[in-house]
Design a protein around this nucleic acid. Sequence first.
DNA 1: AAAAAAC
Length: 479
Amino acid sequence: MSDIENTPEQVRFADFGLAPEILRALTDQGYVHPTPIQAKAIPILLQGRDVMGAAQTGTGKTASFSLPIIQLLLAHASASMSPARHPVRALVLAPTRELAVQVAENVAAYCKHTPLRSTVVFGGMDMKPQTAALRSGVEIVIATPGRLLDHVEQKNISLGQVQMLVMDEADRMLDMGFLPDLQRIINLLPKKRQNLMFSATFSPEIKKLASSFLTDPITIEVARSNATAEKVSQVVYKVNEDHKRDAVAHILRQREMKQVIVFSNTKIGASRLARGLVTEGMKAAAIHGDKTQQERMQALDSFKKGEIDVLVATDVAARGLDISDLPCVINFDLPYNAEDYVHRIGRTGRAGASGDAISIYSDKDERLLADIEKLIKQTVPRGTLEGFVPGGFRSDERHGERRRDRTAADRSAGERPAFERSSARPSGSAGPRREKVDPWFLKPYEPTRSNATPATASAATPAKPKQKIAALLGGLPKG
DNA sequence: AAAAAAC
């Protein structure tokens, strides 16, 4: 894992002055040498400095902040941990539920031999077990922003003693419109604290956010995606739009169904493809935001256990998820954002292993492919699908009647209907979304658009015109 | 043209 960059081979975790309990946990997992970002970040964080880290998943990012957090909390243990009280002293915020769970698993593993306790809170699940965990006392909380605020409002958690704050995948949190939630959370924290922010990109918005709430930060950069791309062999296959599913099935059969993630641009598309592959006799499942949280976790779990060979996913899985040693990623659709291509193919070729990134595209996607190639500054080889005969898929449900049937089947299969998911959030959090990220969102504000302001919020607060992220950032507390 | 996230 330490071959990505110019980390001196002789650096070891044991050199950082970490507590023996932490080193033991690392030894348990077979970690001896830090990755480049760990080698850079750990000493700086141990000094108590704020850090702005530019790093992709798979670089060992989680350990780079978890280990110093644990070390620092242990070092100051006697001061605030004396009686039975376990105030929350470190808070990690993540954009998606799966990422939060994954970070929490890592933190728990590193804490294993220490008296520190941690827990994770995120939406889509019963509040009660989370409440019980919070009330029993934990030093480290990993959370998605919305559910965390929910717990704050219900007084299940107090953030008044937080000494360290981590914002993981900060760029994604901005993209997803979490800025107002982040502001509210930060307002609940003590002014004096250590801040860490991780982001895959350095957009102006991210820089602004960093300058708003990091104090004199040290910036750490680790070689970007090209490092990954070198180990990932990419190829694109052009097929007729109607034959994309056949093409995926064909590729999967050829590869004898080793573990593969297939990315779809839409939730419906993901469900449909997964179902189609199952009828083709493959062990496949879909993971996306319309699945219940239980289904999402189960799909991920059975994929990790190897009970499922093909995980068909939306971009809920494009970033952050650390599914190790994936030999292959397939793009059933080319992503609308070229950035997302990099994140998707970053799921393979990890930790020194090589990987294959296969993309299917059709005539109408030429533009998307051009955008991707411009971003990654290379041409992706055009391949030919050997022996591919379209038409293998049993049913083609492109016509109205059947498609409605399928949607109904989706629902009965446990997916939540759209009205349950409508973003009926308080007006404060119904802020602008994904500005700058996608041209689609740069279109002028149209009050009639359904996603403008939720109806439930409009009674209390009149619909606000789209604000600039910069304006919102201007209101952030300094330091 | 999409996806994600609190009840």
